[in-house]
Each structure stands twice: as C-alpha cells, then as structure tokens.
Design a binder for these strands. Structure first.
Lengths: 142, 142
DNA sequence: ACATTTTCATTCGTACACAAGTGATAACCT
DNA sequence: AGGTTATCACTTGTGTACGAATGAAAATGT
C-alpha cells in the first residue's frame, strides 16, 4: 500500500532539522564532559573576545551569531564570574564595551586545548577526510 | 610569527560545534518562515505520534530525542492547543498516554508537505548528492 | 512476601534563543 | 539647526534543553 511518494514516506528522524538537533545535542554533551564550568556559548564569547580584544556587546554578538538579548545574558553571567569586565564607551554613550579580565584571559588560554579535543571527539566517528567534508557542507548551509 | 600549530590557530567559528549551532539557527528560521504556529520540537512530536499512534510521554520523548522534562513542556503546550489528548494508562498507573486529537491529525497531515519544503530549502545550497552526503555524515555524529 | 531497584512523570533551577517593544543616543539629511 | 532614521542596549514573554531531586508505581531478586 501507498507506493505514492508524496504520502506515507515522511520520517521526522531522517530530516535535516532533526539530525542537526541531535548532532548538536551530542556535541553539547561532549563539551560538558570536558568543560563543565562553561557552556559552549560562554566559551565562544570568551574565545572571540580573546581573538579581537575589546568590543561592544552587540558587535561581539554579531561575531558569534547571537542576538542582542542572548548575548546580554551570556556576558552578564561571564561578568558575574569575573571573566569579563564591562565599561561604557567614552565617545558613544550607547555602547557597552566588553573586555577580558586577567582571569578570563587565563581561563580561555587554558581551555583552548580542551576545546580542540572536544571538536576532535565530536568528529571522531568520521575519518579525517569525511570530517573535512562535513565541515564544508555544514558551512554552506549555515 | 607562531607557526606552531598548537598555539594561535584556534578559531571558534571554524569549529564543528559553532557551525552546528549556526546551521541549526538557519534551519529553525526557515522552519518558522513556513510553519509559524508550531516549533520544530512540537512538529516532531506530532509527526512521531502520527507515525506510531498512542504512546507514553517518555516513550515519545525517547523516539524524538527529548528528555522527560523537555517533552513534558512540549506535550503540555500541544495539549493546551487541542492537538493532543492525555490520558492515564489503565494498567500501568505511572504512565501518561498521549494521543493525537482529530484536529492534531488534520494539522500534521496538512503540514507534512510544508515540512518537506523546509528540509529542501535548508539543503538548497547543496547539490542533491552533497545533501545526501551531509545527511549521512551528520547521522554518524548524532 | 518483602526489600531493592527501575521506571515514569513531575518540579525546580539554570541557560540559551528569539520576537517584540522601549528608551537613549548617534548618524544622516535636507 | 531640526527632523528622520538607525543603532545600541535592555526588558518581557515564550519555548526549548537538561541536571537534579522527588514521589508513585512497577519490576526484580531472594
């Protein structure tokens, strides 16, 4: 029954959205098993800040694909833990500048090797070549 | 400076976790542009229910990769909108059985064609062959 | 039969993620 | 200059997502 392809052949588990969600879940779990005191978004914010130095909150958010409301929460939590410092921009009074503290800098520099291990473990079911292919294809749909 | 590969070459934006997160963001946005009155998890729950018929909340959660706390919220919202119906299992008094209502069945059957379009649009930057490859590789790391 | 362990569901707390609305400031433009 | 528009940050509300703790009921082991 139903050899009609527009009818009964839809399986959520095979859809790109579902698989993307699951892959993400697995990655977050691997991340947490290596770095338990920071979330992936928090880590991304620190790493990017280490990369570019002082920026405004919104600018940082743009760089790591977070909207203003989301980045605020992430930065507030990092600030509460003393990893970043906030200050008003001297010229543009709207802007809230974000900086790494010494502790934040130390933290991110220590964590980068772990982050590499996390990426490796996430991709460990694949050969090096397949991992490379996956990153390329995934980038295209991002 | 720093030709040392273990030092300065870490870029968050190139890591699998970051790209996965971004790809997911894009997919969710595409989903919302086609189906605005349901979220991807809600849709997954309805689709799976339509597939397997009556099940318990936890069982449904297992099938669509949601833990007990998450699936409860999703199902409660679907129930509040009359798309699913909850009832106690007659034998096993711990279980909460979940069923599609007629309205829920009508909804999911109408939405499946849209869901296919969503998957297609998400994968549209890729050739059919690359899309297939992506799904396979992604499944392996899920 | 009874105690131990599992399973099912719930609740609480924390953390993204984004839409929509607000207020303040800056940039632009005639 | 003065009005319009854009940008920056914040707030509220909704919806995942998961850890941890709880209580009820079922399954298991002896």
């Amino acid at each position: 029954m139903s050899p009609n392809p527009s009818e009964g052949d839809y399986q959520v588990q095979g859809q790109i959205g579902f698989i993307l969600r699951k892959a993400n879940q697995r990655h977050v779990a691997i991340f947490a098993s290596h770095i338990s005191d920071l979330t992936p978004p928090q880590f991304a914010a620190l790493a990017k800040l280490h990369d570019v130095g002082e920026t405004s909150q919104n600018q940082l958010g743009n760089m790591i694909a977070m909207d203003a409301a989301t980045v605020k929460g992430v930065i507030d939590r990092l600030a509460a833990r003393g990893l970043v410092r906030l200050s008003k921009h001297e010229v543009d009074k709207r802007r809230l500048q974000v900086n790494l503290t010494d502790e934040g800098r130390r933290a991110i520099e220590e964590l980068v090797p772990l982050a590499k291990a996390i990426s490796d473990e996430t991709l460990s079911p694949l050969s090096a070549k397949d991992a490379e292919t996956l990153l390329q294809l995934l980038t295209k749909i991002s």
